[in-house]
Design a protein around this nucleic acid. Sequence first.
DNA 1: TTTCTGCTGCCAGAATCTGACAGTGGGATG
DNA 2: CATCCCACTGTCAGATTCTGGCAGCAGAAA
Lengths: 236, 236
Amino acid sequence: MSRSERLLDLIQILRRHRRPVCGRTLADEMGVSIRTLYRDIATLQGQGAPIEGEAGLGYVLKPGFMLPPLMFTDEEIEAIVLGSRWVAKQPDKRLAAAATDALSKIAAVLPDDLREDLDATTLLVGPSSASGEAIDLGIVRQAIRSERKLGFLYRDAGGAASERMVWPFALGFFDKVRVMVAWCELRQDFRHFRADRMSALTATEIRYPRRRQAMLKEWRATLDGSARKTAQESAD
Amino acid sequence: MSRSERLLDLIQILRRHRRPVCGRTLADEMGVSIRTLYRDIATLQGQGAPIEGEAGLGYVLKPGFMLPPLMFTDEEIEAIVLGSRWVAKQPDKRLAAAATDALSKIAAVLPDDLREDLDATTLLVGPSSASGEAIDLGIVRQAIRSERKLGFLYRDAGGAASERMVWPFALGFFDKVRVMVAWCELRQDFRHFRADRMSALTATEIRYPRRRQAMLKEWRATLDGSARKTAQESAD
DNA sequence: TTTCTGCTGCCAGAATCTGACAGTGGGATG
DNA sequence: CATCCCACTGTCAGATTCTGGCAGCAGAAA
């Protein structure tokens, strides 16, 4: 195996382990001496990979992900850039910022002519519906990623308010509104919640007792196509 | 310079040259012997780079683009994937297909856990407005890229039809409608054309006499913020 | 303290890369 | 047709890089 392939493997291996891994293990896993492993890690760090080593513990790859070299056609790049611009205009501030960052990273490595093409090819207009969501959807996405319970106040279509504790597992982006899908402890069932009707969002440290994947699968099974289509109207 | 850096340079150099380049030139440009250059090219081809060499001519990089290794945070990947999914649902078939391809390429290199995260994090609903555009927007994008004139029939808001020959230079994606921005030969001015009012689209081989970049800049200068915002209503 | 582990310098052998030379075959040109 | 240009392959010796083992230092945990 060539050195460059091995470096990529190293990153993948580090991603798999969530807890710190000691160099010895990594070296064995790649069939290489410890000395070489240290050199490889140094090389990756030199190239900007966020690997941290601590004596007595081991190595951790800080959250993030390295996309290996990929070939895209002109149209695929256009699609990615256009999509990211759309996200950059979304009311979800954190995600919008992430899209902007991603765009500038991509633009930085694009050759000049292609970058010009992209500047010209698209112009997305405004937030279309800056339907002021008071809450930070970043918190919702974080809760989904880490499978934690989420508390908030919900005002339903009729105007009645209620306090909810839910197990969120998905987030839908519709034209005019964002919808969180979760298991609701109050209703003891799956429910959709429109982001613009939520308030007083509080993230908790409590891990909910089911796997996000399983709930998603179950929820999908309870839906037929037509029900899903109207999800944005029928939130809770 | 290390070999791996040199390989990336090679791709960049090839991208810069639109006409075939002979090996000798490339070798000189990188300060390396011709023999080594052949080896480098072979390596790149082995990694899937679409480089074509023909005796008596030289090398060309087939259209497309190689994204070098890039670090993205979790949120940036989420943003890119979400955006690409949105594009994948757009009525522009070609672009939608490109987005789908790009997504599968990205998914292929994502570690399992991250891929699962992404499956769960978003669910974009439907084409929202499958407002049947009869025309193939791919043709428009192609004309923009190559700076060619475009002919079509246009039916304005009042219902009156007219035949147009325009110099297209930008394309806007709004929630419900796509708008082409172009210099109209009939009106001798910049005009917006809603895609759903265009028909009988015919690409020509005639290169229009101005640089796309320049027109875009000029067009932007003639707009103030409010004018651009309402572009989707005021098409032509 | 001891133990574990990250990290660095050094060195010799292994692996790889590189340049030069020779030769083949296809395309373009005259 | 002959000629030139150029992509492409094989080979081989020397330069370069990589690798593993060893010795030693520093910080964290038990």
